[in-house]
Computed example of a mutant assay.
Amino acid sequence: MSGRGTVKHHDSSPPVPQQPHNFIMIPILPYNKKLTLGYMRKNQPFHLDELPEEYYPCSGKSDRPPDFVFGFPFRFAKGDQDLTGTAAKLYAMQDKIPDEKFRDRTKYGAARAIAEYVRDSIDGDFIDYINPCPVDTNEDIYLVFRLYASFMPASPRPPDWVAQLAEIAKDILQELGWEDVEEPGWYLDVMSKATENHADYNFGSSWRRY
């Protein structure tokens, strides 16, 4: 650990809901248009403190909403048709990592090396969740360097340490040559990518017991 910063948390993951046995489709609560996938896609990304509480499983407002991840969007290089330019930017960042082990491409892909270097550079008892993550978006985003996820908190809000973690991580990414680092945001996890816009999470992840 290099001691770049210290981040603390005291969160625990919520329990996994049990699957019902008898199925009748009814809304969990009064109907909420925010709980449709089309609305979520249209309105992402959300700022750190602006993710609707309905999107946190711990809120109890949906049985199992799709996951959102919070992090820095890494966009495709302009005009890139075959990932050559995008990969070159990631490799250039990897080459600037001070720790030699993370520069070894036989052991680390570029995005993974960058994420692990950021994680290794910060002291603290925060959850080990800094990783490259593909997301569900039609924008020109190759991946997100994920710092946190919506299923993790015990109450429907991000803990204070996430903002502190984002500040430290941004400084490290800029030191690696990523000059145009955008502000981090909440994006739909890639697991919802194959789901249609009309998917409605007012009714949970499946039929619900009456």
Rank of each mutant, 00 (worst) to 15 (best):
G3H: 06
T6P: 00
V7I: 14
K8S: 08
S12N: 07
S12C: 09
S12M: 03
S12H: 11
S12L: 10
S13P: 05
S13M: 02
P14C: 03
P15A: 03
V16L: 02
P17G: 02
P20T: 01
I26L: 00
P27R: 02
I28D: 07
P30H: 02
K34I: 12
L35M: 07
L35I: 14
T36V: 08
L37G: 05
L37S: 07
Y39D: 12
R41Y: 10
F46S: 08
E53R: 14
E54S: 15
P57S: 13
C58D: 05
S59A: 15
G60V: 15
S62G: 13
R64I: 11
R64M: 10
P66F: 11
D67N: 11
F74N: 06
R75H: 14
F76H: 15
F76D: 09
F76E: 14
F76K: 15
F76G: 08
Q81S: 13
Y91D: 14
Y91L: 14
Y91F: 11
D95I: 00
K96F: 07
K96I: 12
I97G: 00
F102T: 07
D104Y: 05
Y108C: 06
G109S: 15
A111S: 05
A111N: 01
A111F: 04
I114N: 00
I114T: 04
A115P: 00
E116I: 01
R119A: 09
D123I: 07
D123G: 02
I127V: 11
I130L: 11
N131Y: 07
P132I: 09
C133S: 09
D140K: 03
D140I: 05
L143P: 09
V144W: 00
L147T: 06
Y148K: 08
F151T: 03
F151L: 04
A154K: 10
A154L: 11
P156R: 01
R157A: 06
V162F: 09
A163M: 03
E167H: 13
E167A: 09
D171S: 11
D171H: 07
D171G: 05
I172T: 13
L173M: 04
L173G: 07
Q174H: 07
D180T: 10
D180E: 10
L188Y: 01
D189K: 08
S192G: 04
T195V: 13
N202W: 04
N202E: 06
N202D: 08
F203W: 04
G204I: 13
S205C: 10
S206W: 01
W207L: 09
R209H: 09
R209G: 07
